[in-house]
Each structure stands twice: as C-alpha cells, then as structure tokens.
C-alpha cells in the first residue's frame, strides 16, 4: 500500500575498492524526489534471510539513484551480488533530510567516518558553486577503506583524510583533522555522519566552539516508515525515531551513549 515502494532495474553495481560498492538503480522518479540526507530501504532478496530490508543513504541522485555501500554482513553481501538488469525492490525516499545552510554560512565542513561519507556527495552536489567553502574531513581504517575522493574534489571540496594506520593521509582519527576547521559560530556549519564515537567527538568540538551542526544517524531498522518505533535513539527531547524524525538531527540534540 505504500506509494513509495517499487521494483527497479540495476544499472550497474561496481566494486570501487575491496569492500565498497556503488549501486546505480534506474529509478529516476525516486532520484528526482530525493533531498540530501534522505535514504532508501532496500529489500536485498525475496527470501526471509535476511528478513528486514536494509537502509542506505542516497549517494547521488541524477539520472539514476546511486547508493554507496560497504559489505559488512549478509544483507550487503546479497546486495553486492546484484547484476546489471536485476530487479531491486526500493522503498523511498524516506527520512528527514539535511537542512541546507543559510546564505550567511561560509565554511561547510562535512565530517565522515567510513561509509558515513555516503550522504555527503549528494549534499556537495547541491551546495557546489554557491560560494561556500566546502571541506570534507574523512576518516577510514586503512588504505583499502578509503574510497577515491575524485567526485568530491570535482565538486570543489577540499578533502582531508585520516587513517588509523596512516596508510593514506594523516595517521589517526578524524578528530586529528579538526584543525582544518575555521571555527566561526556565525559562518561555520558542520555536517557529520559516521560511527557514534566519532560523531560524539564532533559534537564535543562543535560545542566547544559554539558551532551549529547536523548529524545523520544510523540504527537497525524494521519499517523505515516511522511505524514500528524500533529505531529510536535518545535525544534531549526524548526518544526519536532515526527513520522518521531523522536520520538527520540537530547535532547538539543527540545523546550519544556507550561511546567511551
């Protein structure tokens, strides 16, 4: 009964580096509707294993709907087996998108950990050539986990990378790159997406310098339609669903737990 669910064809499903893939779906109608930060809920196969759909941020929405994903378990493994011409069952776009920065903003800092970079390409697609300084701080585990940043650079983003082992960019965490930010409360805006400990560090940094920001969160999901109330996280105004109230929240509203 959902007007948002449809079957589309796979255009391509490309392996970009050892565990990262890019899936292009011939879903122009969905692509047209998507706003940066929204996601799609994909049924990876028709069996009951895995049972749930899997949520993925929209990576790019031009002619096709693109999803950028990392293989971490059975659902993403099944997705990686899809071939050109295969059917893919997509529900979406769903979720509350990023609020785009006001004209006053100068420096837009996107801070991503791992696959958390996914919602930022479409964001930079929308923000490019508008006079903002676009900065991407990206943290990955090692070389094999760092996706070539070509598309971000083409959008005019200044890209800074940190890896745990220093195999690319600076050695250490993404927080080692915070020095690239010019923290001016009236003109610097932060967008972040990645593992909770990283986003907690971003929140602490933003708080210290009184910067406003938004965070895209992740939680295991069943419906992705705000119906089951299963994907709730703690916020300063009570439990909120990541799929419906989020995934994008005010950075300062989220209460990160178990991050120490």
């Amino acid at each position: 009964m959902s007007a948002l669910q449809n079957i589309f064809k796979v255009v391509s499903n490309e392996r970009l580096c050892p565990r990262f893939y890019k899936l292009s779906i011939d879903a122009g109608a969905v692509a047209k509707k998507v706003q940066p930060g929204q996601f799609v809920h994909i049924r990876v196969n028709d069996s009951f294993q895995p049972f749930f759909r899997r949520p993925f941020s929209v990576y790019r929405a031009k002619k096709y709907l693109d999803v950028f994903y990392e293989v971490v378990g059975p659902g993403t493994k099944a997705l990686s087996n899809k071939k050109k011409g295969d059917d893919v069952d997509v529900l979406g776009p769903v979720g509350t998108p990023f609020t785009l920065p006001s004209k006053k903003a100068k420096q837009i800092v996107m801070i991503a950990g791992g696959i958390g970079v996914a919602p930022f390409l479409i964001l930079s697609d929308r923000l490019k050539q508008q006079g903002f300084e676009l900065v991407l701080l990206y943290g990955g585990r090692t070389k094999g986990h760092v996706y070539p940043m070509k598309e971000f650079k083409q959008n005019g983003c200044k890209v800074f990378v940190a890896t745990d082992d220093g195999s690319v960019g600076v050695k250490g965490r993404v927080s080692n790159l915070f020095s690239k930010i010019v923290p001016d409360p009236s003109t610097t805006v932060i967008y972040t997406c990645g593992p909770s400990p990283m986003m907690a560090a971003v929140q602490a940094f933003a708080k210290r310098y009184h910067l406003s920001g938004q965070a895209a969160c992740e939680e295991v999901m069943a419906c992705a339609l705000g119906a089951c109330l299963g994907c709730s996280i703690k916020t300063t105004s009570g439990y909120k669903t990541v799929c419906y109230d989020g995934p994008v929240f005010n950075l300062h509203e989220i209460i990160f737990e178990n991050t120490h």
């Binding site: 895995p50 049972f51 939680e219 299963g230 709730s232």
Partner: peptide
C-alpha cells in the same frame, strides 16, 4: 516514553521487539 534502545533485533524469518 517506551523502552531504552536497542528496541528491535532481526531473527531468522522474524524479529524481536
């Protein structure tokens, strides 16, 4: 307010809530 997260888990052909 409901229960603290985690609130759901996927299981073989089903779920816990």
């Amino acid at each position: 307010a409901g229960n603290p997260p985690v609130r759901i888990a996927e299981t073989p052909a089903g779920m816990l809530n």
